[in-house]
Computed example of a mutant assay.
Amino acid sequence: MANRRHILQSLGAFPMLAAFGVSHAEAWPSRPLRIVVPNAPGGTSDIIGRLLTKPLSDALGQPVIIENRAGAGGNIGAAAVAQATDQHTVLLCDVGGLAISPSIYKTLPYNLDRDLQGVAMLAQSPHLLAVHPSVEANNLQELIALSKRTRLNVALAGQGTPNHLATVQLAQITGIQWQHVPYKGGAPAVGDTVANVTQAVLNGMAATYPQVQGGKLKAIGVAGKTRSPLLPNLPTLAEQGATDFESGTWQGVTVSSKLPKDQVARLHAELVRIVQEPALRAQLRDAGVDMVAMSPVETTQFIARDRVRWAKVVKQAGNTIEGST
């Protein structure tokens, strides 16, 4: 009888053990989390991603790894995440690039509406227009006049990126003339402007301001609604004649649409908590970046609105880039 009771008690424990096993199997993440940054190292998205890895790893209990997948206006990285089946691959990028791609590329290896979902918006900073110190222009009007007398090469952080379209839009508004030179990210674009391979760059504050601060680049104007606290004496481009012009970088996180909503909710909660930490906020504020928190739905809606905005710029420019990643 004792043996029978022992057996029954053991059998009675199985449902509890089984339930524990199922719960353990469903725990997420169950392996290292891979954050894909679709640009070269050193750009704004890369800077923010690397600041997130340690606190996010501590919060999730798994290693967090940055993987730079640059090229094709961010579409190589975006496709890697959209097509991921492991539920442990995340895209951190300037979400404007996602919004632009459907208007620029005739074919894409993913469907923005179907294959990706928003998780969180994290940060925002205005673009900064800067030139090599040898360029004989100290403001936007002087730069416009100079561009009509001599060839100016402007570095792009990638073909089909927000930097690219903002550069196109600025020319539409002001009549500035410059030759586009595309790179695989903001860091190499800024680097070649410092080296005077290109003479101008319109890029995010985080990667550009340190070079202005160090005297390696000369700031012409900031593309925000208001002046930057880092450069309070520098007029906005709108103040200098580029009426209503505003552009910048919005770092957001998206994942495959196949990722369950409860996992999306957890990732969102941890990311928002981390970017609101005072030390991280202060570190990024010193680089000209403001932390911005948006819900998964708000992030998806933001991308949809940006898609409409940039489609108008592309239509006016009349330059659809053929091909895909």
Rank of each mutant, 00 (worst) to 15 (best):
L202E: 00
L202T: 01
L202F: 00
N203G: 06
G204E: 14
G204M: 13
G204Q: 13
M205T: 03
M205D: 04
M205G: 03
M205S: 08
P210H: 11
P210I: 05
V212L: 08
Q213L: 12
Q213W: 09
G215E: 04
K216H: 13
K218R: 14
K218N: 02
K218I: 02
K218Y: 04
A219R: 05
A219S: 04
A219F: 09
I220R: 09
G221P: 04
V222A: 12
V222Y: 07
G224M: 07
K225L: 13
K225T: 10
K225Y: 11
T226S: 14
P229S: 10
P229R: 05
L230C: 09
L231I: 02
L231K: 06
N233D: 15
P235F: 06
P235G: 11
T236L: 06
E239G: 12
E239P: 11
Q240D: 07
G241E: 10
G241T: 08
F245H: 11
E246F: 12
S247Y: 06
S247P: 05
T249P: 03
T249S: 15
T249I: 15
T249C: 13
W250P: 06
Q251I: 15
Q251V: 15
Q251S: 13
T254F: 13
V255F: 08
V255L: 07
S256M: 07
S256Q: 08
S257T: 09
S257H: 06
S257A: 15
K258R: 14
L259N: 06
K261W: 02
Q263S: 06
V264C: 00
V264F: 00
A265I: 10
A265L: 04
H268P: 01
H268W: 01
A269G: 05
A269C: 02
E270M: 03
L271S: 02
L271A: 03
V272W: 01
V272Y: 00
R273K: 10
R273F: 01
I274W: 00
V275C: 01
Q276T: 08
Q276L: 03
E277Q: 14
E277N: 10
P278T: 02
A279G: 04
A279D: 05
A279N: 05
L280F: 00
L280Y: 00
R281I: 11
Q283Y: 02
R285W: 10
R285S: 14
D286P: 02
D286W: 01
A287F: 06
A287Y: 07
D290T: 12
A293W: 09
M294P: 01
M294N: 12
M294D: 13
M294Y: 11
M294K: 13
P296R: 06
P296M: 08
V297R: 12
E298V: 11
E298W: 04
T299F: 00
T299V: 05
T299H: 06
T300A: 15
T300K: 11
T300S: 15
A304W: 00
D306L: 15
D306V: 10
D306P: 01
R307Q: 14
V308F: 06
R309N: 13
W310R: 06
A311P: 07
A311T: 12
K312C: 01
K312W: 07
